[in-house]
Every structure is written in structure tokens, then in C-alpha cells.
């Protein structure tokens, strides 16, 4: 932030560039463009976006969802998995009693009562009206308390400078990031799917189903009516937006 004096001098400089009148119009302009649309545009709590992951359809050894996510967001491996961003990861499991094996993708679970949101000192870690948990990287100071608080280890801190970002996925050093449920895609158009779900379908597994958990007619709610879906670490009662079938 600049001290006011410097700011005043710069504004003066702009004035010298040939502007004399327009400044007073700014508030009016802002409020008009925004208010006119706020009633129709923007996220609303009428929706709650979520994922349903059918582990019986998820193949061990397949990482199409991870690749799809990384490609979409321009996450390039530096060769060190411990410091690279990990928005989504694949885990292979074996049941200790039955010996049955399963495989699943793990990512931000978009909790309703998200520990990361509670602990964030600046409020940069926040939950959108439609239930998507995000980091506002403009106010993130990189304290990493949310990484400590996340029970799912779904958050990554960016350890080094990044280049060649995608224009729709800004990412940079010193802030925390995690799965955004591809907000830039689903905000833009109706019926858009997150990249992981698209990649999984392209691989003919269709293990990841995306949809509105508040809409009784949506595919995801219907699917959840048919088979019991559970939450990872349901003991914490976080009411996650990502659910698993046959966990």
C-alpha cells in the first residue's frame, strides 16, 4: 500500500495526462453495472455444488482426473511431489478386515463447516454462497494455518515462483490453493463440468458425478438416493460437498 501522499501525487499525474472530469462518475458507474446485474447474476445459495465419486468405477493406476485437473489449471510438476501443488490425488486402499482393494481421488471436500475457513486470519479462505470453498488469493498472506487445519490434506502452499499460467487460472508464489471445483468453468456456462469429471468420463470410467446437491431432480441427488454415499472422516461432521459411494 502506498502512503496517501504518494497516491495523491500519482492521481495528480493522471490528471496531468489530460483528465479533468471523470472521477466523480466512478461510484455511479460501478454501482450501475453491478447492481443492475446482481439480481440476475452471481452465485446463490439456492445451489450447492458437489461431487459424487463412485469408488467401484475408479480404477487403480488411472490418474486421468489428476492429469485433467493439472492441465486445466496449468499445474506443472517440478519433479518434487512434496512441494508441488496437489489439488487432487489418487489413493489406493485396502480394507484391513476383508482385504478388499479400492481406489479413489481425494481433493478439497468443500465442507459446509470448513475448518480452513474458520481458522483463516484474513478471511481469504472462504465459502461461496453455492458451497464452494475457495482461497481468495488477493487477500491470502500465506500463513498456512488452513493447510494445518484441513483434515483432508487438500491444500497446497506454493513454494516457488510460477510462470506460464493459464489466463483463467491465476496462480503464484506464497499463497495457498486447492481444488476450486473449476469455478471458472461452472460459472461461465450452464452444464459445464469440472475438468476431473470430464477427464474421468473421457476415460470411460464416469466415476465422478458433478451436480447440485440442493436440486432433487439433479443426477447427483438421484444417484445418492439409489446408493448410500458416505463422507470421508464423517466423525468430524463437516457435511462435505464431496461424497463417496462404496468407500
Amino acid at each position: 500500500m502506498l502512503p496517501n501522499k504518494a497516491q495523491a501525487a500519482r492521481r495528480l499525474f493522471l490528471q496531468r495526462l489530460g483528465v479533468f472530469s471523470a472521477a466523480t462518475a466512478l461510484p455511479a458507474l460501478l454501482s450501475s453495472t453491478v447492481d443492475a446485474q446482481s439480481s440476475t447474476k452471481g452465485v446463490s445459495s439456492a445451489q450447492r455444488w458437489g461431487l459424487l465419486i463412485d469408488t467401484s468405477k475408479c480404477a487403480s493406476g488411472c490418474d486421468a482426473c489428476v492429469r485433467g485437473c493439472h492441465e486445466e489449471h496449468g499445474i506443472n510438476s517440478t519433479g518434487n511431489e512434496h512441494t508441488d501443488a496437489q489439488w487432487i490425488r489418487k489413493i489406493d486402499l485396502q480394507n484391513n478386515l476383508s482385504g478388499q482393494k479400492s481406489s479413489l481421488p481425494m481433493m478439497c471436500q468443500h465442507c459446509e463447516s470448513a475448518p480452513c475457513v474458520d481458522v483463516c486470519p484474513t478471511g481469504a479462505s472462504f465459502k461461496r454462497a453455492d458451497g464452494i470453498v475457495l482461497v481468495n488469493k488477493h487477500t491470502c498472506i500465506g500463513c498456512r494455518y488452513c493447510v494445518m487445519a484441513c483434515p483432508y490434506k487438500a491444500r497446497s502452499f506454493i513454494h516457488e515462483p510460477i510462470s506460464d499460467q493459464k489466463s483463467w487460472a491465476p496462480r503464484g508464489q506464497g499463497t495457498v490453493e486447492s481444488c476450486t471445483l473449476c469455478v471458472h468453468r461452472i460459472d461461465a456456462e450452464k452444464d459445464q463440468q469440472p475438468a476431473c469429471a470430464v477427464a474421468c468420463t473421457d476415460e470411460a470410467h464416469s466415476a465422478i458425478l458433478f451436480g447440485d446437491l440442493n436440486d432433487p431432480d439433479s443426477d447427483i441427488v438421484k444417484a445418492m438416493a439409489n446408493q448410500p454415499a458416505s463422507q470421508v472422516r464423517s466423525d468430524l461432521q463437516l457435511n462435505t460437498g464431496v461424497r463417496y459411494v462404496k468407500l
Binding site: 512434496h82 496437489q86 490425488r89 489418487k90 489413493i91 489406493d92 486402499l93 485396502q94 484391513n96 470421508v232
Partner: peptide, 25 residues
Amino acid sequence: SQSTPQDLFPGKTVLASTFGDAGFP
């Protein structure tokens, strides 16, 4: 407190993970 993987799946063993759910340096 950060040195052991967080136990996400009680009753299950992590066979493999792309990001240290089974252990890390």
C-alpha cells in the same frame, strides 16, 4: 504433529498415494 500422514480412512491401509498418504520424508 505434522510428521505422520493424516489418517483419513480408519480401518483401511493406504497401499499407494500420489502425495504421501502412506508416509513422507
